[in-house]
Design a protein around this nucleic acid. Structure first.
Lengths: 212, 212
DNA sequence: TACTTAATAGAACGACCGTTCTATTATTCA
DNA sequence: TGAATAATAGAACGGTCGTTCTATTAAGTA
């Protein structure tokens, strides 16, 4: 039995195909939603047999969770970690927002798999929902930390409610994604940026300028 | 053949059961999502046979659209129309926001069926998605109208972007619903109200006060 | 009340679902 | 290279899906 967790050393054949499956799964969840993520279709798309694919995961539920984990890993890789290169405070907060808005196209995904998961599992109890809540909770906590740093840096007013800020920032990004997929509105990104600037302005320590 | 559209005159037996089916369908879509809205389960829940229920709708797709229409009808009945009793301008806009936040519990629904539909159909082409886009477009237009009235009343700055306001207001409400179902956060409503006040404040014609 | 039509039940369909079992083919490692 | 083991294929399962057909019961109407 190979080590279940992917190590940095040479990947075995099984680990390679598993990675290929998850790649297809993430792309598929983003495009068609988790409901369309059936084992039969996924097997066809990866050139495997149903049972061959199934053997990599003990159950459909495990496959869904693994897909969720992989999507989170990619978000961290292309959006969160790069934003940490920005200096603590408002600069970093802005980088977090911008990277969050753009991470799907940077990952060549048609939509955000996390948002798709949110939509389909937020009211359906089970292990998938639990995993999802944990991922989103962690993301939310990271935003709160970044806001707190901005307060500590003196760029936001000390009475700024960090959790409230995270709530609103999440809403702006989520609505941007929805506006893209539902209304196909090319102005979605700019709308989100205007909203974010408005939110930031209302928390600024110095006299907030009302943007255009 | 009875008249397909429900009239105000005496309802026939068929119309009665159809209404009962749609009532169960809306409640079920809100609670478990549209994916769980299968004909078998719905038949069981209404005490009908599968084929008996099916006969009321030509197809599953028609059932989904009818469920969407019914949900919209109820939203208009308990949220939109009552808000029109408030005087044009900011008062009405605030009533729209508050009623939008509270319409599901006033309708005894566990969640918002429209938000559930948004999540599951926003990227899946078909007649259901088309109907959904139309409903949401209409809602959005109504908000834009209300914002424009607020501008005309001199309560918002003339350069206020009404479409941008609608975008952000939609995001606030949507995130509130998600925060309720995903994080089960009892503070969700208050968070949404704070966000809405912030949005309103940034558009006020007189000097905007930065709320708590 | 009789007749027409609407409303519903029941059985069956092909398709796909997730899952299990067994067999066969690759890969790994001594 | 050869033995142990991992990776995959293929067939089959019971279950549920949406849908269709035919028969039966209920409702509306002259």
């Amino acid at each position: 039995m190979p080590s279940p967790l992917s190590t940095t050393s040479k990947p075995s054949k099984g680990e390679e195909t598993r990675a290929a499956i998850l790649d297809a799964a993430v792309r598929m969840a983003a495009t068609d939603g988790f409901a369309a993520l059936t084992i039969g279709v996924l097997a066809e798309k990866t050139g495997l047999s149903k049972s061959g694919l199934f053997a990599h995961f003990g159950s459909k539920e495990d496959l869904q969770i693994a897909t969720l984990d992989e999507a989170t890993r990619r978000y961290n890789e292309v959006a969160f970690v790069p934003a940490l290169r920005a200096p603590r405070g408002l600069k970093r907060l802005e980088a977090l927002a911008e990277n969050w808005l753009l991470w799907t196209e940077r990952s060549q995904l048609k939509a955000c798999p996390m948002m798709a998961a949110l939509a389909e599992f937020d009211d359906q109890p089970g292990a998938v929902r639990d995993a999802l809540v944990q991922h989103m909770q962690r993301m939310n906590d990271e935003i709160i930390r970044a806001v707190q740093m901005t307060i500590d840096a003196g760029e936001f007013m000390p009475q700024t409610d960090a959790a409230q800020f995270a709530f609103e920032m999440f809403g702006i990004v989520a609505t941007c994604y929805r506006s893209r997929s539902l209304f196909l509105d090319p102005k979605s990104n700019d709308r989100a940026r205007v909203a974010f600037r408005r939110l930031v302005a209302s928390c600024r320590a110095s006299a907030p300028r009302t943007g255009a």
